[in-house]
Design a protein around this nucleic acid. Structure first.
Lengths: 336, 336
DNA sequence: GTGAAAGCGCTAACAA
DNA sequence: TTGTTAGCGCTTTCAC
């Protein structure tokens, strides 16, 4: 492979002149620049940026660590991250950890070994070792969709799950619903949404009985089953708040299979606004999480941190937005 | 940041000894290795792999260029690519080109400048400039989901769209359908699927009239409209082959809205087996494309090329698989 | 304007 | 078994 040495030799000049010409230095004759550029094009020479980065101590590479790039939630995040980073001449390497702590650590090690400029990460669980590693990282780190745990002092970017859940619950109550069930998601995000639900209910003097809360899971099937359990235990519910759209769609499946009409007999709402919620058969009312924007903001934050290494920027919580569709409606007055 | 020089100085030995110890050379005393390792841990020193890669001329980085990482089709490909590459100690940088030719070229330039070991690419359109650039690349290139165009001599990995379309058409015919409509996708992939459809129809002596073929697009909405046009022009059709699932779902939407029962009145099949096809309301019979496997195979191919730079491996066409669901059924005997 | 030389952090002969 | 030295391909003083 060619080097600037070859170009210099061909042109009978020194490597430093070639280097300067290539970097468009002010103190190089125009004609010289032109001759260098021409020779580079002629020989199809491309400078080795890696060598350059060893000197400026800047790789223009950023790492993005997520549980699974094939999960559209994360891939939309990734797209946002990429958009702003590429605009600033960085490249981004991704890794799907599959929620494996060893993979997460391997990734952070890569980041340091390869002298990336920074990383954006969505770890699955913060064990002591991970916290320790992150603490010792000599490059900027921003958390995406995870709140900063005890013992760390790095910024995060996340959606406002609590406030979103409050808004959504208010919405259901404003439609006249008082008997509202909840399909729970046992993650920290699920916890925040549940809290918003509970708080808003009690703010309106509405009780949430134990049998109107049921645990879902990660799949549509689990949502379906959860809805079954919820309905069996509590057939008088007029609305259901599913902690996310996956569970919400599962709930809708159950109701469709059992010919319980939505929203006439029961209203259902979800959270996230994932793609399929807009399908003709689903039309799920939900809270939109700005997934791409979250990625963009995380990237901007990281870029700032890379630029001015000293100061720590603030964490950012992005608002969610109510998407009204057809799965929730006014409570019809009941016959007594 | 620390270097092996610091470690060497602290331990009163030469940098080469430290280097050898770190790389687990046979000709270093065990005790020395231990002392080096211990000191590295103590100071939290991580060797600079970039410097190393300048010497071995191997970056252990591979590029993945696709139209859009947020499109689940590509993100599943990406997951497959990543899985096998990471297993072989490589890292992968991705770029979503948004089908912008300039972005595609910028990516290839990056690959060369940064001395990546190879790239896996899904270009949108092969113009002359792109073909020229690829030809001049001094690193291995494999095409993913694109056939190798005239003028290039690089391997590709793709699904067998033609054969899949033949199988699917045979399936419809075996169910008794003879009047089959086609919602077309005007891409090269769409072309292959259409060809499989046409060929199989004519093999069975079945004609495909002009008004039973209609052009769809990239969205569900366009599929819905296309179905509308198809039905208006040709209400006697008993089955519809949509060139992909997006169009197929759009078709199902149209039929649901107009209360035309599927599969009782009309059978619908799609192609790709994307996520939502399995939803309760959809249950679309379709041909599965092995998306993750395609990524894996492309990565394996690339790894081979990186290992033995001389020989060119064969391109690979992966089979598709019929997924029978409920959107297509036996043709009921008609009343005359 | 241009060039010589030192050096980024590491590896790999070769010498000791 | 360890150390010396010359680079990998580039940038950057500092002379000229």
């Amino acid at each position: 492979m060619l080097t600037i040495k070859d170009i210099a030799k061909n042109l009978n000049m020194s490597v430093s002149t070639v280097s300067k010409a290539l970097n468009n230095y002010h103190d190089v004759k125009e004609e010289t620049k032109l001759r260098v550029l021409e020779e580079c094009r002629r020989l199809n020479f491309t400078p080795n940026i890696v060598a350059r980065s060893m000197i400026n101590k800047k790789s223009y590479v950023v790492g993005l660590m997520i549980p699974d790039i094939a999960d559209s939630f994360f891939s939309v995040n990734a797209r946002g991250v990429e958009e702003v980073l590429v605009q600033h001449d960085h490249r981004v390497v991704y890794a799907s950890t599959g929620r494996d702590p060893r993979e997460e650590k391997r990734f952070l090690t890569s980041a340091v070994e390869r002298r990336w400029d920074g990383v954006i990460i969505t770890p699955d669980y913060f064990d002591e070792e991970l916290i320790d590693m992150i603490q010792k990282m000599e490059i900027p780190v921003v958390l995406l969709r995870r709140r900063t745990p005890e013992g760390l002092n790095i910024p995060f970017v996340d959606a406002d799950h609590y406030q979103g859940a409050c808004t959504l619950t208010e919405y259901l109550i404003s439609l006249g619903h008082t008997k509202i069930g909840f399909i729970h998601l046992s993650t920290s995000i699920g916890g925040k949404r549940f809290q918003g639900f509970i708080d808003t209910m009690s703010k309106h003097g509405l009780s949430v009985s134990e049998e109107s809360v049921v645990i879902g899971g990660r799949s549509i099937e689990e949502g379906r089953e959860a809805m079954g359990r919820l309905y069996a235990a509590n057939p008088s519910l007029t609305a259901v708040f599913a902690a996310n759209d996956i569970l919400g769609i599962g709930a809708l499946e159950y109701l469709a299979i059992h010919e319980i009409r939505v929203p006439e007999q029961i209203s259902v709402v979800g959270f996230d606004n994932i793609e399929f919620t807009n399908l003709h058969w689903i039309q799920l009312t939900t809270m939109e999480q700005p997934r791409k924007e979250m990625g963009r903001v995380a990237a901007q934050l990281l870029l700032e941190m890379i630029l001015k290494r000293d100061e720590q920027p603030e964490s950012i919580t992005l608002p969610t937005r109510l998407i009204e569709r057809r799965s929730a409606s006014f409570l019809k007055p009941q016959a007594y």
